[in-house]
Nucleic acid binder design. Structure first.
Length: 589
DNA sequence: GCCGTTTTCGGCCCGACTGTTTTCAGTCG
């Protein structure tokens, strides 16, 4: 590990410690304490170093005396003695065994201590030799399942996590195919898909039906399904073609509320809610709120579950155990942004650069969706791979947009803009004189994102401080699809603080391949007082449909509508844009 | 290891499914 670890690295380290302790056979509550601390550290947007400087480490939920000391050691030295001693005792290569289906920490400990297995190759050999079936608690069937699990893992049939956009489409197709099954009253997807997490582990479907068998049969026979993994009387698991796993649960309609609440998660949210239920004299499960005397209160809708526990219904995007229950109990849930709040879109491309449709087609598509304005932001010349516009081409487009602008009778406004490249020295790809010709400027860093942290941060800072830059496009540059691309490692607290001070909006790019800013970074930016722009980055008319993904990121970041500049009327938006130079001047003074 | 509007000690969410089992452990969510 180089330098001081960030929150994500620290959380990952505590997760590893939890796994290693569990394999060793440590008390499960102690193990869970590390996991809970890891979760909360990961969800905290504020860097641990800063929390420590404020002396409030112990106020992070799940961080007590022992874990706080470990965090301090990590921050001071970049190392953790406790972890280094632990890994000497428990081989770290054992962690890869946890990826195998039907293998958990107990069985890893079992094969390690009894057979001397320390990695996947060793487990494969033991399974092939028939040495697993003689272990206590295992038999021939378990050995066969493990052998199959190892094969599936090796042939990559098992998907890790799937980008939200991909999972979304599969879920819609599955839901559609199950809706017509006999006896089905309602069917919805829950889990991380409903919470709109940027990647989805598996698809969770909940069905209200008088009879579970027909809908299970329907799923089992679906052409989308590659394999049925298990099937009981109310629960079934499948693997879809492509590798995603899916779970189907069937409940009575009268129990829908508790079931959907449970099936939506997150696990951390559910645990907290169930603990709260216990304090109120209830045991909460997917079936009911049960009094200690055994009587049940059924909830047909989620609202009732939350109401009985003394709070308003919590939007799924907030259910991550990040303080939403405390806020709801105090009546302090934020007013979240909704899709209908968006009045315009502030990043779009036409065939002039790398888009697939004309200016007119894009404008028409935006107008049809009820938007009041659209900012056209074709790439600047420096991004040759995307057919960036020359200064002359941009000027031609600006005058064309002004002409077209008069043709919309209903007040729809087509705005001229540019997605201008930020060079490696922090300068922009177009001159100030040219940029003054457009209504709004979106600045983007597309190259050398993985460079030196200080240098990368400097580029973002120059972009944000520029008097003519209004929005910072897809700030981290990460990509979720294909091989993916990790986002830039910058000092985001500095970038966000500067954006807040200069009134520069940070883009939440709604394209499902980007979702950038991420929810946690957006929440940190929110705390630091930033403005945002939720933009689809549409390269074709149908891509305006991406907007709801961006809205969900904003919800997950607890962002209210007034912080999002494209919820504003166009006049206010343009006034804000014109005042950027004055804000920068004030900042420097 | 964490935590407290009954607790600074003694708890720590709840259940389905499978396989190995004479009553339950392990995995998963």
């Amino acid at each position: 590990m180089e330098g001081t670890p960030g929150n994500a690295e620290t959380a990952a380290l505590f997760e590893r410690i939890a796994d290693l302790l569990e394999i060793r056979g440590e008390n499960v509550f102690k193990v869970n304490a590390y996991r809970r601390a890891a979760e909360n550290i990961l969800e905290t947007g504020c860097p641990l170093a800063e929390i420590r400087a404020e002396g409030t480490l112990r106020q992070v939920p799940g961080v007590g005396e022992a874990i706080a000391e470990k965090i301090e050691e990590l921050l001071d030295t970049g190392r953790l003695g406790f972890y280094e001693r632990l890994r000497e005792e428990v081989p770290e290569s054992l962690l890869e065994l946890l990826e195998v289906p039907d293998i958990g920490p107990k069985r890893v400990g079992l094969v390690w201590k009894n057979l001397g297995v320390t990695d996947l190759a060793g487990l494969s050999a033991a399974a092939a030799d028939g040495r697993l079936k003689d272990l206590p608690g295992l038999g021939a069937k378990s050995e066969a399942k493990i052998r199959k699990g190892l094969e599936d893992l090796a042939s990559r049939k098992i998907a890790v996590r799937t980008p939200l956009g991909v999972a979304w489409e599969l879920a819609a197709a599955v839901r559609e195919s199950l809706l017509g099954a006999p006896g089905v009253e309602r069917i919805e997807a829950g889990g991380s898909l409903r919470r709109m997490k940027e990647t989805v582990g598996d698809l969770d479907f909940l069905t209200a039906a008088s009879d579970a068998e027909p809908v299970m049969d329907r799923l089992a026979e679906s052409p989308l399904v590659a394999e049925v993994l298990l099937r009981g009387s109310t629960k079934m698991s499948v693997r879809f073609r492509g590798g995603m796993q899916g779970d189907l649960r069937v409940v009575e309609r009268a129990r829908w509320g508790t079931a959907w609440q449970y099936f939506t998660g997150s696990q951390a949210h559910n645990v907290l809610l169930r603990e709260l239920a216990l304090k109120n004299g209830y045991s909460l499960s997917e079936y009911a709120l049960k009094r200690t005397d055994g009587t049940e209160r059924l909830c047909a809708e989620e609202e009732e579950v939350y109401r009985i526990l003394g709070m308003a219904w919590i939007p799924p995007e907030l259910r991550e155990g990040r303080g939403e229950i405390e806020a709801a109990l105090k009546g302090g849930l934020p007013r979240l942004i909704e899709l209908a709040d968006l009045k315009g879109d502030l990043q779009s491309h036409t065939e002039a650069s790398d888009g697939r449709a004309t200016l007119e087609e894009m404008a028409e598509a935006a107008r049809k969706r009820g938007l009041r304005y659209l900012l056209v932001t074709d790439h600047s010349q420096g991004l040759g791979i995307a057919g960036g516009l020359s200064p002359e081409a941009l000027l031609r487009q600006v005058s064309r947009i002004r002409e077209l602008g008069r043709s919309f009778g209903d007040g729809f406004r087509l705005l001229s803009g540019s997605e201008v490249e930020v060079h490696s020295d922090g300068s922009l790809d177009f001159t100030d004189d040219l940029l003054k010709e457009v209504d709004l400027v979106v600045a983007a860093v597309h190259s050398a994102l993985s460079g030196d942290r200080e240098k990368v941060t400097g580029r973002f800072l120059s972009a944000v401080r520029h008097p003519l830059v209004h929005i910072l496009a897809h700030p981290t540059g990460r990509l979720l699809t294909g091989k993916g691309r990790t986002g830039a490692d910058a000092d985001w607290d500095r970038v966000f603080s500067e954006a807040a001070a200069t009134g520069t909006a940070l883009e939440i790019n709604a394209s499902p391949m980007r979702l950038d800013l991420t929810d946690t970074l957006a929440r940190r930016a929110m705390e630091l007082g930033c403005l945002f722009a939720i933009s689809t980055d549409a390269h074709a008319p149908e891509q305006f449909d991406f907007a709801h993904f961006g809205v969900s990121v904003a919800k997950r970041a607890w962002i209210p509508p007034e912080r999002v500049v494209n919820t504003w009327e166009v006049d206010r938006l343009l006034k804000w844009a014109r005042e950027k130079p004055a804000r920068v001047a004030d900042r420097v003074r």
